[in-house]
Write a protein that binds this DNA or RNA. Structure first.
Lengths: 199, 199
DNA sequence: TGGAAGAACTTACCCGCAGTAAGTTACTCG
DNA sequence: CGAGTAACTTACTGCGGGTAAGTTCTTCCA
């Protein structure tokens, strides 16, 4: 017989199992009973802790996103200049996704949340990335130039959308091209354009 | 009492209703019974014609995508040169989505199909756009240059992902910025980079 | 050391909805 | 008219998200 545990430990245990199973089978093909069985606990307990299937999924999603955001932020901050920061950011993005394939499956599935209250929360998580990118773009503007905030948002959304799509495409392509190839192509494609917007 | 109709007419009627209801409520919140009721027909008939809920949704999706692809292709082909073609393509993309908000809701929901056999089909539809973009990029390469097909795919996927994300962001933003603003920012961001890849 | 208080956990259900088996009604053509 | 078939329905199953109403374990103070 399994012992009882305190709430925080059990929550972590449930979250880990959920991440694993959602990652393997996707949102739709995973039932709350499956997760309950994996943890060795009954379904209502999960509902008590996470409220709903969406809630549980969202908890997985936001933990994973935070890890990814950390990895990318770190790479960006460690770079000596803006150009290399951009390249490093791209590489670390694709590399993280390579090294955490299950994590990535969960995130791709977030389309699942297109409706409902959880959608809002999911958007916020995504928004973190857009903000990271927007900040980088802003830092690289000449200080005297009046910032067109709308334009910055457009650029940040575009880059975020592009990298996300590339990551999806890449998994369907059995992991090629390499992160470096992707990063350098993006770099070439975008760098001059960013320069042009600066003018 | 409603009369019987022949299969093709009924199929169209069902598809129209499904597009409307999916567009209003999203995939998850729409039940097959809802659609059946709207058409004034019983549920098994829809199953006979479309096989499954995914099948029906996919049928809506692929019709709408085809319309959107037509609109964009036409705009692109009507332009006098590559630079204007790119701009015109962007504008027509955002404009179409503006003018067919319901269409757009259906398409955004396609994340819903992340799993299952329908996912494959959904990807194919999306692939049409990537191919359109890739073709345009290819046409604009100097003929003597050895084409790096992988690089072209990366670029096409990026642009497709970026525009899709911008469209989603835009609807959450109550339809601003304007299609023209988006198109011109993208143009500035990407044009020089495409030039750089050409070299 | 007993026993109240509360946290951790379960049993046993409900119901909405995708999907189906088996039949019924209306149209069509010889 | 009647046989054949296309269009359609009634009446169900089962899965899975979600919940009401308890039951056991554990802690901690008298």
């Amino acid at each position: 017989m399994k012992r009882r545990r305190d709430r925080a430990a059990r929550e972590r245990e449930i979250l880990d199992a959920a991440e694993r199973i959602f990652g393997d089978r996707g949102y739709q093909r995973t039932s709350m009973d499956d997760i309950a069985a994996e943890v060795g606990v009954s379904k209502p307990l999960i509902y008590q802790y996470y409220g709903s299937k969406d809630g549980l999924f969202l908890a997985c999603l936001s933990r994973l996103r935070a890890q990814l955001l950390d990895a990318v932020s770190e790479a960006v901050l460690a770079a000596p200049d803006a150009e290399q920061a951009m390249y490093a950011g791209f590489v670390s993005w694709f590399t993280f996704l390579d090294e955490h394939p299950r994590a990535w499956s969960v995130m791709v599935d977030e389309g699942m949340l297109a409706a409902g209250p959880a959608a809002q929360a999911a958007d916020e998580v995504r928004g973190d990335f857009v903000e990271l990118i927007a900040t980088m773009v802003r830092l690289n503007l000449p200080p005297d130039r009046p910032t067109d905030e709308e334009e910055i948002q457009i650029v940040a959304q575009s880059i975020s959308g592009a990298t996300e799509r590339l990551a999806i495409w890449r998994t369907k392509n059995n992991g090629s091209p390499t992160p470096e190839k992707l990063a350098s192509t993006l770099q070439t494609l975008l760098w001059q354009g960013l320069d042009a917007l600066r003018a």
